Amino acid sequence: MEYVWRERRVEVGGRRRIYKVFEHPGSVVIVPEQDGKLALVRQFRPAVDAWLWELPAGTLEHGEEPLDAARRELEEETGLSARRLEVVASFYLAPGYSTERMTLVKALELTSVPAHPDEGEMIGEVRWFAPEELLRMAAAGQLTDAKTLAALLLVIPDRRPR
């Protein structure tokens, strides 16, 4: 898949501007939920040289629908398969420079399958967390991935840390 920077010429208030825009095919973030707990992956991110706790996520392949991508990414990264997938929301990740629109999908009625991360992915472990623990981690700055924080805001009903 090729990612491309393009220039966009925009006229706002009588002034012409040129913006560099990163064209992106879209992505998904998945919230695996079972028995009241949510699964996150610990993944190494070379851009920030750190291991981060994140919800599983990935880029749509050419022509792929978000629910199909969610099913594929969930299995690749976590070794889980969902009998039921529900779209919760859709949002832009960085509209200041990118067209990437992410679809948030809840994965329910889960079973185990063999995990098979993409070649470049470094996933250390998959762990289940109670929502309250994730809220405490977010408040303490231990969750630093924006897509994970946004998704948790939308899926945990009572978002106040205790």
Rank of each mutant, 00 (worst) to 15 (best):
R6G: 06
V28Y: 13
G96P: 02
E109F: 07
A115W: 01
I18S: 03
K106F: 05
P32R: 02
I30R: 06
R6D: 10
P32V: 08
W128T: 00
E61V: 08
F44R: 01
E100W: 07
T78I: 02
A70H: 14
S81D: 09
E65W: 04
S27N: 02
D158P: 12
E11P: 00
W5A: 12
Y19G: 13
E121I: 04
R84N: 09
E109N: 08
L104M: 00
R84A: 03
E65N: 03
L152A: 03
D49A: 15
V113K: 06
D68N: 14
T111G: 15
H62W: 09
G120E: 11
L153T: 13
E132C: 10
L80V: 00
F129W: 04
F44E: 01
V29C: 09
V48W: 11
V10Y: 08
T111H: 11
R84H: 03
E73M: 13
K147C: 01
K37V: 14
D118I: 01
R101H: 01
E77V: 07
L74T: 01
A39V: 04
A151D: 05
L52D: 10
D145I: 03
G58N: 01
L110W: 03
A115D: 04
L104N: 05
S90I: 06
E76K: 13
V126K: 08
W51E: 11
E77S: 08
E132L: 12
W128D: 01
A82D: 02
E119Y: 11
E125F: 09
A94E: 08
S98A: 12
F91P: 10
Y3W: 14
D68M: 13
I18T: 10
F129Y: 04
V12Y: 12
I18K: 10
A107M: 12
W53T: 02
I30G: 03
A69Y: 12
I18N: 07
R15Y: 00
H116G: 06
A140N: 10
R9D: 10
V41R: 01
A107F: 09
A94R: 07
A140H: 09
V12M: 04
R160A: 12
D49V: 15
L74E: 03
S81I: 07
E65L: 10
V88P: 15
A150K: 01
T103Q: 08
R127T: 11
L152G: 04
L149D: 00
V126C: 05
D118Y: 13
V88A: 07
V28C: 11
E100L: 11
M102F: 12
R15P: 00
P117D: 02
R42T: 07
A89H: 14
E75Y: 06
A94C: 03
G63S: 02
L152S: 04
P131G: 07
K37R: 15
A69R: 13
